[in-house]
Amino acid sequence: MYVAVKGGEKAIANAHALLAKRGRGTADSPRIGYEQVRDQMGVLVSRVMAEGSLYDPDLAAKALLQAQGDVLEAVTLLRSYRTTLPRFGITPAVDTAGLPSERRVSATFKDIPGGQQLGATFDYTHRLLVDELETTDVPPPDVPVDEPMPRVAALLGVDALIESDRPAEGWTDPDPGDLTREPTVFPMTRAERLQALSRGDEGFLLSLGYSTQRGFGNNHPFVGEVRVGEVEVEFEVPEIGHAMPIGRIEVTECEMVNQFVGSADVAPQFTRGYGLVFGRAERKAMSMSLVDRALRRDEFGERSVSPAQDEEFVIAHSDNVQATGFVEHLKLPHYVDFQAELVLIRKLRREFQERQATRESAAHDSTREDTNRLEENA
Rank of each mutant, 00 (worst) to 15 (best):
E282N: 04
I90Q: 10
E376G: 01
E328N: 09
R181L: 14
F326L: 13
T271S: 11
Q213G: 12
P144Y: 04
A267I: 01
Q309D: 05
Q353P: 00
G262Q: 05
H220N: 11
R166F: 13
S46F: 00
R190M: 10
D165E: 15
G262C: 06
N258H: 07
D146N: 11
G115L: 12
A13Y: 06
D131Q: 10
A153G: 01
V138L: 07
D175E: 14
V261N: 07
E360T: 10
T121Q: 02
T91E: 14
P113G: 07
G279I: 06
R293I: 04
R346L: 11
E134G: 06
D95E: 15
H220V: 15
I32T: 14
K110V: 15
V343A: 14
I32S: 04
L155R: 11
E375A: 15
L348W: 03
P238W: 01
E341M: 09
N218Q: 09
V158A: 10
E234K: 15
H334S: 13
E73C: 07
A15K: 01
Q356N: 10
G247V: 06
R359M: 09
G7H: 03
R283L: 11
V336D: 11
R79M: 01
E302Q: 10
V233G: 04
V277T: 10
H16N: 11
A378S: 14
V158G: 03
L78I: 13
S53E: 12
D370W: 00
E328W: 02
Q213T: 13
L374V: 14
A264C: 02
R227A: 15
E147L: 12
L374C: 03
F260H: 14
A196I: 00
V237S: 10
E302F: 09
D298E: 12
G114K: 02
M288L: 13
T172L: 05
F260K: 01
D146S: 15
P183Y: 01
V143W: 01
E9D: 14
P141Q: 08
G170N: 04
L99F: 08
S53M: 08
E253G: 02
P144K: 04
M49R: 02
G119S: 03
M244T: 11
R359F: 09
V145K: 08
S29R: 12
A153C: 12
Q116A: 08
R248P: 00
V94S: 12
A267D: 09
L19R: 05
S304T: 08
F338E: 13
V231G: 04
L206M: 06
V336I: 09
K62M: 14
A378G: 15
V152Q: 03
L59V: 09
G229Y: 00
H16G: 12
L59E: 10
S318V: 05
G200N: 04
L156G: 01
D58N: 09
D310T: 04
A15R: 05
D56H: 03
L332N: 08
R31P: 00
F109T: 03
S53F: 06
